[in-house]
Design a protein around this nucleic acid. Structure first.
Lengths: 271, 271
DNA sequence: TCCTGCCTTCCCAAAAGGGATATTTACGCG
DNA sequence: CGCGTAAATATCCCTTTTGGGAAGGCAGGA
């Protein structure tokens, strides 16, 4: 009956096994199915839809497991405007990522009587739904919707706890996949590449803005005192920043910072 | 007492949080510390050592958290030959990756009486040890050793279960990090240009061969002591070389040496 | 023989590394 | 609206490393 969806319920992996496969698929074409398999290993479900949200544009479909011949009816209608009535979409627009929400947290009290529910929800056989919102760089967001169908039980409290616990890992996984090297190292021609480029993105994602600023000054040959003058802070503070930088990078001296940076340069120039 | 190791016991993250940070650091300089933090979140420990194993070569140190002043004694001795007696190393050479093993699975019955244990194990304050072996492409392997010190309890059965359960995810994580795109697009020839070229030409005409050799080692991140080991001379002599190098180049610190080198790199890449 | 490159050992001052602790500011959360 | 967290700022104290000076031994070549 619920053959609206392709039956890719996954090979019954444990969560760690499924997660390992998803990590291995980062950057590869089959990533999203592996990521969904991971979620399925945490708490099983049938329907799945992944959208990319960008400010000021309608949602863009990235992945779904709706059967080919039903896709137009199910996904098409949603993208053409039904999404504006979707309580998840509305809640995510107002909230802050990353987040995991269940239908009970976003649906209006009389959801079962709403037009959206009667006209859309029932037509796709959905019985229960939950969704992840994951923030990406450049004000983009991923919107994972996962659903149980009319022939399945609703998500239990334990299911929801497990999914919520998986949020941080799932978000990191998706950010890694949807922000590939191309995104980071594709600095517009000219000012971005080469040494200045390597300097400006060195440690991106690991260091705070201030720490990266300090690291760059140190790499340029400034002593702590000199860095302090350049940054307008006290030499003691520079030492604290250096300590934090070294700790985050797993090193313990200026020399190793140099070595790390040279290594990054080599890897970049090899690409 | 157990101050042989830097005390980076991590910020007390939960395993999912620590895993998310590790995923986010894939491909970045600070990956290994984040990966180790993940293991620590699964089961705490103090000592940590990561080696890269390649067929037919001695192990190569990638990361450790041994205090700088103890590194020579602890890591140096291991790399210089003690590893051949290491029961983990022997077991991994014979087995198949990926794998997680505990000391009780690899140590000979009379391990406590063995030369290795008495001469090496005790000297580094190890009380208990476990290790991961992770297979990479091209017959390379990662060897993560994690240890509890004399002032900590041994790994419990629950600790070992949790670490073993983390193996698949941990292995996938490390394969992803240590098999970057550079692996595929690694152009072979052209050893003269780029960073290696700049390194080998650096200071030509001004510095003696020996001085240039020292300068390159310093630029690669070695401390005076480390340079001394590499070059087979005494640390004091390295200091004299550094002094002469700085004098000839008209500078007065390692930082300025690095700045000078970066400048040379820019000029070269512009040409 | 002298000179230069290379190695070595002292001593002393400056810089860097590491731990502990505290204040201020900003921001998300309840 | 307070609360807690994180970042950034700052100081104090201590150890290790680095930088700089002086003084010397040992090789091979002009």
């Amino acid at each position: 009956m619920a053959a609206f969806y392709t039956d890719d319920t996954g090979p019954g992996l444990t969560p760690p096994e499924a997660l390992a496969e998803a990590i291995a698929a980062i950057g590869a074409p089959g990533f999203v199915p592996r990521a969904v398999d991971y979620l399925r290993a945490v708490a099983p479900f049938r329907g799945c839809l992944l959208l990319m949200l960008e400010d000021g544009r309608p949602p863009m479909r990235v992945y779904d497991n709706v059967r080919e011949d039903r896709r137009d009816a199910v996904i098409g209608r949603y993208l053409e405007g039904a999404y504006l009535l979707d309580p998840f979409y509305v809640a995510f627009r107002a909230g802050r990522a990353p987040a995991f929400l269940h239908l009970s947290e976003v649906a209006p009290d009389r959801f079962a009587q709403s037009t959206y529910c009667r006209e859309y929800y029932h037509s796709i056989r959905l019985q229960d739904e939950a969704a992840f919102l994951i923030d990406l760089p450049e004000r983009r967001h991923l919107f994972y919707s996962i659903g149980r169908l009319a022939d399945q039980p609703r998500f239990t409290a334990a299911d929801l706890r497990a999914l919520r616990a998986a949020l941080s890992v799932f978000a990191a996984l998706n950010r890694r996949h949807f922000t590939p090297a191309a995104q980071q190292s594709r600095r517009g021609a000219g000012a971005g590449t080469g040494i200045d480029g390597a300097l400006s993105e060195f440690g991106a994602g690991l260091l705070t803005d201030r720490e990266r600023e300090i690291a760059i000054l140190v790499l340029k040959g400034h002593s702590s005192k000199s860095v302090a003058r350049m940054a307008g802070i006290s030499p003691g503070t520079v030492k604290i920043h250096r300590k934090n930088i070294y700790r985050k990078l797993g090193i313990s001296s200026q020399s190793e910072l140099f070595a790390l940076f040279l290594g990054a340069l080599s890897r970049q120039s090899a690409a």
